[in-house]
Design a protein around this nucleic acid. Sequence first.
DNA 1: CTAGGGTTAG
Length: 698
Amino acid sequence: MAIYSAPFALHHNNLCLQNPPIIRLNLRSSSHHHHRFSTITKYVNFSKAKSTNQTISSSVQQDELMLTNIATVLHSMDLTNPDQCVQSYSLILRNCRKLHNLQLGSQIHGHMIVSGVELCEFLGSQLLEFYCKVGCIDNTRKLFDEMPERNVFSWTSVIGLYCELGDYNETINLFYLMIDEGVRPDHFVFPKVFKACAQLKNYQAGKDVYDYMMTIGFEGNNCVKRAFLDMFIKCGRMDIARRLFEQMNSNDIIMWNMMVSGYVLKRDFKRALRYVDQMRLKGVNPDRVTFNTILSGYAQEGQLKEAAKYFSELRGFGGLEPNIVSWTALITGNIQNGYPYKALNLFKKMVTKGLKPNSTTISSVLSTCTNLSLQKYGKEIQAYCIKSEELDSNIFVGNSLITFYSKSRNLNDTTRKHFNRLQQKDLVSWNSILSMSATKGSRDDVIKFLNDMELQGVSPDIITWNGIITGFTQYGDGKTALEFFTKTCHRGLSLNTTTISGALSACAQTKDLKFGKKIHNYVIKNQIETVSGVGSALIAMYSQCNNLESAFKVFNGLSRKDVTIYNTLISASGKIGFGVGAFDLLREMVLRKDLKPDSVTMISVLSVCSKLAALRQGKEIHVSIIRHGLESSNFVCNALIDMNRPSSLRLFPSSPRHHRCSKKVSIPDSPCHCLITATDKLCDSRFGCKLYDSYYRL
DNA sequence: CTAGGGTTAG
């Protein structure tokens, strides 16, 4: 029967039953595997922050013990007793599963074939479960398709594997195939299917499964209940989740927390907090997760005061110390809402308190270091990570470090060294190093890394190519960017708006109107969304190729125009010297009720003014800047100064930009403050005031 | 007959 065939070539001669040396071979090959395995385990356990060095070494001991057990059982097996064989193989396979050792398990599979044991329904499902748990989809599928009897265990294993791999559509498909085959689903399989629907945010699919469950009168346990509750929440149906949850009258803290998190996700803090009160009334005490859920919601929303309140409420109400999740939520909240230095201080405070940052914390903090160019601080963090085995081998940490080094100046070699010493590399790692190499203009490196990644079995995706294209354009090598764009097209990947706008920028840079037109045709033919990115890239391309007329044509042809589109055409008109056009566009924009000029608009128009020495219009625009509340932007101030430069130069023959100063002053909320900040920190108060006077005298 | 799993917080 086909099921007895090994799914791949096995070293049968190595698996001779009477020959003890084989087991040595098995052991050796497994301990060889061991290194790889232990890093995977560490990676998996990482987020749970459980694995200390101690548990790792004890798990190594446990593994050794299991291997020895396998060897013993294999040798003491009585091949004349089929029942005993089934028992033994079942035990061995369970251990192989725990060891997560594909090679060992495959050899056992071979052993089973050679021994001639009948691969009954039970043993078949055991073997299948093994292949599923090690994530070996090919062997799983082959075995599963050939199995004559597929019980609920086998179906659940395979469905679980597809769910684990993220193929949620197939997860749902298989569920219905199972039903069609007459197998009744149980409380092990429902959670997986609900999870698939939840991940897909496919309400209809989820409701169908739920309705089916009701039709067959299935009484779900807590796991099942949590799963479909989660599904309705993830699909945004709090109304249904709420109705079902209240019907359940449950005192399960996890379900309560799920409801709270559902409302927090919708930013409905009022309802979320009402649930916290209700759970207290029910005698279910809110735990750390409850508080962290609310804390993180407020932090993400930028309501940092409220977030801090719940941070302290943990202790006050809950009698709990904030844990790493609480701290990290607060830190990332500060980062994402424009307080990076506050975030760094929190990080320091956290470390001082003796809390150990984990990969999420480190990634957030490193991204701040990258954005603020805090080279020294970032390096300190790496030094910290190297000391910790878990952090050092963590792929998220590794990837944040690639970004950090590649955005730092003069650290190209450091980046490469760091990249080479990474134990694990994923697509993100390769994409980062490739994007960096392109940004630095190293065509050779890009080719080398592309080659290396393919050799290591990672194929570039559209993000890889986008990074390369925009990288070279940023570097100023539009020609090479277009060369890689052509390569991307040959790959047959579907291009997205980033690819198109990147390529159009490259055309603009090289003034390659012909290529640009070709891309424009592609955009029209494939009906690519022209809002924002692509639309403005087209306008910029045509105008930089000295074809302002086509730029206006594109602009007029756009069904929806946003601020960016207007800004691009205003700036393009200004650059070409078509000042009237720029002013008209601004007027048109102000008249539209759905659009508001932003600081970029103002900068573009002001640069037109300074180019045309149109001081009167410039002053009108200054009024408009104040009216729109944009005067606090440093960039706008710079543009205002630029506009007045000819006059300031007349008044101050020693150019303000070269003025050395000894004292820093700042007069908040005054134009003077803006001017001081803007002119490269011209910080002499006397000078600042003169500048201030001069501006208003104009 | 034996066997299997999952959820809320960054």
